[in-house]
Design a protein around this nucleic acid. Structure first.
Length: 686
RNA sequence: GGCGGGGUAGCUCAGGUGGUUAGAGCGUCGGAUUCAUAACCCGAAGGUCACGGGUUCAACUCCCGUCCCCGCUACCA
């Protein structure tokens, strides 16, 4: 079913998730998105198919305006910096986009606002009024991130309108106590504003049919499952506009200060990037997006599944003239040395730094990240593994085979491809195996199985090594030089095929090898031919394709990460102090020593325990979010401190009277606070 | 808690409409070899296929339950 559908396509449009222009690219992005997409694109190109590989920087949205404010720059300056950095490092790394654009480009603003206008004119969008916080001094509505206030949960005074960074709770701006505008410092006022929504709920039947029925077997289980989960939970209308001045302006009269919500404009960036490319090269962009014989494929990370499988397709569908994606191969996440990659904690291997620290080793990283790509589950990148894969696989299997063959050719035949003579069974068998590789590897690629494809490529080098070792030409040369000619001819054909078939995976290596063999780039299915190199053809001097990566280079990287780890924990040890309070403020708190009498888990929650506590004054129920840290059986009898005069509050239907005090370190571990001596319950604390 | 994904050799992963001795690469050990960047090649050891039930002549593969990891989501007074 999925195979027959591939036949009808005449061209392929490949998109890779637009990197957000507020930071550089790291190995997680590469392994999950850009490398697989690049391999796929290069493969199709090499097959001679019509294909475009499109990407660009995603440059709108609130986080960029925040970063700009923090650094005292304009948002444009921020995105310029990262756009340039990202674009350059992609190029140097060998990600071969047909076009890399950016969403601040004029053509993108035109495309995105026209797209919105079409949906608006068609009556697709639903208009709704709502109340939002407004800064009167600056005369603008405030994004959630532009409002700070006191967290209603933990009392932290610098909580943001969308999240409290102290306790991690996600908030809505309305929950904040004493909200303040980040812009003016004044309390914001509520004001009516109008926004447009994409009514995803209306298109549930379409999505059900298209995804749940139509792509049950050709989409990856993680993607299909995630979509099913979303659809089954019930889709809600999603706002497509925001009150902000950084982004694509609404193409409607009288709505200054409104822009398209960044998630709406970003995927349209694929389209505008295609248009920009088409204008520059004199092509027709529309067939890549509107012709039913075009296969549209989005490469993304798992955080992006809902946008690319549900929201963007709904946009394309409602617009009316666009095709929908044929597949959305999404990868899971890559961890680094056992921990989640984190931009803010600097726990990452940054591409631009790698390129500096390992010059000329683009393909090593491409190889390692493809071989260890998180295709079906999260995976871990370690520098030890990086070293091992370079030394024991790329170098020992691939590089070594090529080197052996070329050295022997120079030694015995002065660098000229010797002619084949009598073909033995082994020769024929090897050439037969060789012939199958383009098909085998190609099939893996067409099913988005990049790890499998790469290991297929390595198998070809193994075939070569085995053949060469078994035939032992170095033993025969004195007695049977003609036989050696045949053997080396066969080995050279394998090398030639390696040069051809490695191109999608290891483009730099492929280029070097082609040069060494004196070959021009070839079509995919030329790989596998047994006469790619004519006899008598002169090859160049061999150079090493890969060099050994020594222990000190690896230790340097590990040390670099260790320093990061130290910096992080040093930084985190000291959380900034809260605002100064008066003694009177303090005396309002009634803190008491207490003992836990009973503990049970609150059903249907992960973190909540219902505790019965003896406060000395009374026995009361307290709900505490500590279930992940403490076992119920171990709690009865435990001494604690509670805040006894906190207003009661219902949590999951249980009235909680007071709050259990705990200390939390930067790893999120909790510990009890209690009197060291065995004091009576109800002793007051001051 | 709900939903989704995953739990298979020391490591990274394949696998199967249920059916002979569960596969690969790397690592380890042994052998062979010297053309080659101490590389290649051959061989071996290594797994109760997370755990407990059930269906079946037969389950790692199907069903039910439990546990663990990841993501989304609810919850942290």
């Amino acid at each position: 079913m999925s195979n027959s559908s591939q036949k009808k396509y005449k061209r392929t449009t490949i998109t890779a998730a637009l990197p957000y222009a507020n930071g550089p690219i790291h190995i997680g992005h590469l392994a999950g998105v850009y490398i697989p997409a690049d391999i796929y694109a290069r493969y199709l190109r090499q097959k001679g198919e019509e294909v475009i590989y499109i990407c660009g920087s995603d440059e709108h949205g609130v986080p960029i305006t925040i970063k700009a404010r923090k650094e005292g720059k304009t948002p444009q300056q921020v995105v310029d910096k990262y756009h340039d950095l990202i674009k350059k490092s992609f190029e140097e790394f060998g990600i071969a986009f047909d076009h890399y654009s950016r969403t601040s480009a004029r053509i993108h603003h035109e495309t995105a606002s026209a797209f919105f206008k079409t949906l608006y004119d068609k009556g697709v969008l639903v208009e709704k009024e709502s109340e939002q916080y407004y800064d009167e001094e600056n005369k603008q509505f405030l994004a959630d991130r532009y409002i700070t206030g006191t967290c209603p949960h933990c009392g932290y005074e610098q909580a943001y309108g969308d999240q409290c960074e102290n306790c991690g709770t996600s908030l809505s701006p309305n929950e904040l106590i004493n909200p303040k505008s980040v812009l003016s410092g004044n309390p914001p006022v509520k004001k009516n504003t109008r926004h447009w929504y994409l009514p995803l709920d209306h298109y549930e039947p379409m999505l059900r049919k298209w995804i749940l029925e139509g792509h049950k077997h050709d989409w990856k289980p993680n993607v299909y499952g995630q979509c099913k989960s979303w659809i089954d939970q019930g889709l809600l209308p999603r706002a497509v506009t925001r009150d902000l001045d950084w982004g694509v302006k609404l193409p409607l009269e009288g709505f200054d200060g409104k822009v398209l919500y960044v998630w709406f404009d970003a995927p349209i960036g694929y389209i505008s990037s295609t248009r920009e490319w088409a204008e520059a090269t004199g092509r027709d962009w529309e067939k890549y997006w509107k012709s039913p014989d075009t296969k549209l494929v989005h490469f993304i990370g798992k955080d992006n599944i809902v946008f690319h499988c549900i929201i963007f397709p709904t946009m394309l569908h409602t617009e009316g003239s666009y095709i929908l994606p044929d597949n959305v191969p999404s990868n899971e996440f890559l961890n680094l040395e056992g921990n989640k990659i984190s931009t803010s904690r600097n726990w990452a291997v940054w591409l631009h730094e790698y390129l500096k620290e390992f010059p000329g080793k683009q393909d090593v990283l491409r190889y390692v990240l493809c071989a260890a790509a998180p295709e079906t589950k999260d995976n871990d990148f370690t520098w030890k593994d990086f070293q091992a894969r370079n030394n024991n696989e790329l170098l020992a299997v691939f590089g070594n085979f090529v080197n052996r063959t070329l050295v022997l050719t120079h030694k015995y035949f002065d660098g000229r491809v010797p002619a084949k003579g009598q073909i033995t069974g082994k020769d024929a068998q090897t050439l037969e195996q060789l012939a199958q590789f383009p098909e085998t590897i190609g099939k893996s690629l067409e099913h988005y199985r990049f790890r499998e494809a790469l290991s297929g490529l390595m198998n070809l080098a193994r075939v070569g090594n085995r053949y060469l070792t078994e035939e032992e030409p170095w033993k025969l040369f004195k007695t049977d030089p003609e036989r050696v000619q045949t053997i080396l001819n066969v080995c050279l054909q394998v090398c030639a095929s390696l040069a051809v078939l490695s191109e999608p995976f290891l483009p730099h290596t492929s280029g070097k090898l082609l040069k060494m063999l004196g070959m021009k780039p070839c079509k995919w299915h030329d790989g596998g031919r047994s006469n790619l190199l004519e006899s008598g053809h002169a090859i160049n001097k061999p150079e090493l394709l890969f060099e050994r990566i020594e222990e000190d280079a690896i230790q340097a990287q590990i040390e670099k990460l260790r320093v990061t780890l130290n910096n992080n924990s040093a930084g985190e040890a000291a959380k900034p102090l809260k605002e100064t309070i008066t003694f009177d403020d303090f005396t309002k708190l009634d803190l008491r020593t207490a003992t836990i009498l009973e503990a049970e888990k609150v059903p249907k929650t992960k973190k909540l325990l219902k505790l019965l506590v003896d406060t000395g004054v009374d026995k009361r129920t307290v709900v505490a979010g500590i279930a992940e840290h403490f076992n119920c059986d171990k709690l009865p009898g435990r001494k604690a401190v509670i805040l006894a005069n906190l207003a009661p509050r219902k949590i999951k239907g249980i009235e909680s009277h007071g709050m259990l005090l705990m200390a939390e370190n930067h790893d999120g571990a909790l510990t009890f606070i209690a009197a060291e001596e065995n004091f009576d319950n109800g002793s007051s604390i001051s």
